[in-house]
């Protein structure tokens, strides 16, 4: 009989091994997605349909998050800089915050909630009702048919959603600062060109590509391994949401180190 500290170590070891096995399986799915990406042109109808379902239909939520994020960032920047720095720096500060961090990360988290969970629920339901087996029995690759269009669509749509989120976020910030806080338009927008670097846009969008990719692949992976009927689908939905959020937060940190 192992002592309590030994049991703790054993449990930690078992969980670590289980986690690494899951990670290897996600990597194997990713490898299969890459090997089947060639079929995307043939399945362009499915791809476009997923762009609409996962991307365009996420737009209202993304815009809502964007406008409030921009408004809050502007308001708080005004409060924080008051008496320390000229207000002309608020515009560039909001722009950098939204483009480099808040836009990609918050959009990523919102999408993780909406899209990753919905992908897991859809594929999970198909798995437990044998629709995935039905596809495979017809010699149609379930990865090609279900995962590739969704992952490709999210990877493409995520940067587009981030651009829209940042754009409306800047609008939100400009509105509260000019209409409520009494700054002039020139004061808000004037210095932004001086602080505008293409690399910032590249970095923000680069992050968003990885966030879209990770949220969708986690949704697909968890969908494919769903078991046990409605309860299993419910659990898969929650798992997909939680793991997508965790992955996005970790990736955000790793990419920040790499990019800056």
């Amino acid at each position: 009989m192992a002592s309590p500290p030994e049991q703790l170590v054993q449990q930690f070891g078992r969980r670590t091994i289980a986690f690494l096995i899951e990670l290897a399986r996600v990597a194997a799915l990713m490898r299969r997605v890459i090997s089947e990406i060639g079929g995307l042109f043939r399945d362009r109808g499915l791809f476009l349909q997923e762009c609409v379902t996962l991307g365009t239909e996420s737009l209202p939520l993304v815009l809502l998050v964007g406008i409030f994020t921009g408004a809050v960032t502007g308001w708080q920047a005004h409060y924080q800089l008051e008496g320390y720095m000229p207000f002309d720096l608020i515009g560039p500060g909001v722009w950098k915050s939204l483009m480099l961090e808040l836009g990609p990360a918050l959009t990523g988290l919102v999408i993780a909630g909406r899209v990753s969970a919905s992908i897991a629920a859809e594929i999970g339901t198909m798995k437990v009702t044998e629709q995935v087996d039905a596809l495979e029995s017809m010699a149609i690759s379930s990865v090609r048919y279900l995962a590739v269009p969704r992952i490709a669509a999210m990877t493409v749509m995520m940067p587009i959603l981030v651009i829209q989120s940042v754009t409306i976020g800047m609008g939100g910030a400009a509105f509260v600062l000019t209409a409520i806080m009494g700054m002039s338009g020139h004061q808000f927008w004037g210095l932004i060109p001086n602080f505008f670097h293409l690399y910032d846009i590249f970095a923000g969008l680069f992050k968003s590509v990885f966030f879209g990719l990770s949220a969708s692949i986690i949704g697909c992976y968890i969908g494919f391994r769903t078991e046990g009927g409605a309860e299993g689908v419910g659990a898969a939905t929650i798992t997909a949401f939680v793991w997508s959020c965790i992955t996005i937060l970790v990736l955000d940190f790793v990419l920040a180190i790499i990019l800056f």
């Binding site: 339901t125 198909m126 009702t129 044998e130 629709q131 087996d133 039905a134 495979e136 029995s137 017809m138 010699a139 690759s141």
Partner: peptide
């Protein structure tokens, strides 16, 4: 495997029609 599967038709227990 996919070539061999083309020789099969399968009727699943719950029909497994695509919703």
């Amino acid at each position: 495997l996919y070539e061999i599967r083309k020789k099969f038709g399968v009727l699943f227990q719950g029909s497994a029609l695509f919703d």
